[in-house]
């Protein structure tokens, strides 16, 4: 579903954010990317939907090469949902308008159909009563669930999560992780940058560890649990 082949990305010519990164993600898999801050996790995620203009390598999503000149990047992005650390809801629009904007403007869905669908998604993330509220009137956990609903409204084939719980209070983390867990169980292809190791162990098919712009190790959730007792990935969390 997603092939990342020898991707390198520089910021300002001097700062290398990704250094020859390769990774392959199959349909229906959930892959968690973790590692210290500044290691390139979010940059890698943004390469998948072409939000980063990486200079070397190839990213192929569902058979379409992201940075190839002939690619309709907007069309490709419509198939890939993305959720951000700070929610990034459109503050001047209601929850309903946030969710229906892209379906109406990109998919050319009628308002009635888009709104009906949005309501169903709001039910699914547990906050149908907030449809007519504005983002700043919601709690952090509610905002993030709206952001997930907004991404799902485009019926994406892939969902990207960029530290979706890092800006949340502990009591709100669970409500967001529950939605993500359900999504993974339903077979959505997901790439998740997170520090939530509980989620990684429980849900991820694979965990990718990044450090200093490279992927340094990959493993399954159980690999991680056992490795933790000895050495390897656990060293990231100890800060060495």
């Amino acid at each position: 579903m997603i092939q990342i082949q020898h991707v390198s990305l520089w910021y300002d010519k001097t700062h290398k954010a990704l250094d020859d990164v390769s990774e392959s993600i199959r349909r229906g898999q959930t892959v968690v990317i973790c590692g210290p801050s500044g290691s390139g996790k979010s940059s890698l995620l943004r390469c998948i939907n072409g939000l980063e203009r990486f200079q070397e390598g190839r990213v192929v999503v569902d058979g379409v090469s992201v940075r190839q000149p002939g690619t309709d990047i907007h069309k490709l992005r419509a198939e890939i949902g993305m959720v951000f650390q700070h929610f990034e809801l459109y503050p001047h629009m209601t929850v309903m308008q946030n969710i229906t904007l892209a379906p109406m403007r990109v998919r050319k869905m009628s308002r009635a159909v888009a709104e009906k669908k949005a309501m169903a998604l709001l039910e699914r993330v547990g906050i149908p009563e907030k449809a007519s509220r504005f983002p700043e009137e919601l709690s952090g956990g509610q905002k993030q669930r709206v952001a997930i609903a907004r991404a799902l409204a485009m019926e994406p084939k892939i969902m990207l999560f960029d530290e979706p719980t890092s800006a949340l209070d502990p009591e709100m983390i669970k409500e967001v992780l529950d939605v993500m867990t359900d999504l993974a169980r339903e077979g959505m292809t997901m790439v998740v940058v997170t520090h939530e190791m509980g989620f990684a162990r429980g849900v991820a098919d694979r965990i990718v560890f990044m450090s200093q712009a490279k992927i340094v190790e990959t493993g399954t959730g159980s690999d991680f649990s056992s490795a933790r007792k000895t050495k390897g990935p656990a060293s990231f969390w100890n800060g060495s």
């Binding site: 943004r46 700070h86 990034e88 990109v106």
Partner: peptide, 27 residues
């Protein structure tokens, strides 16, 4: 407006004109 706000709008498949017209400029 934070960079991720632009990214969030682009990520849904909106074109540059749409991103500015519906999301960035009104804000």
């Amino acid at each position: 407006i934070p960079r991720d706000q632009y990214r969030a709008a682009y990520a849904t498949g909106l074109t540059t004109v749409q991103v500015y017209r519906y999301v960035i400029a009104p804000f």
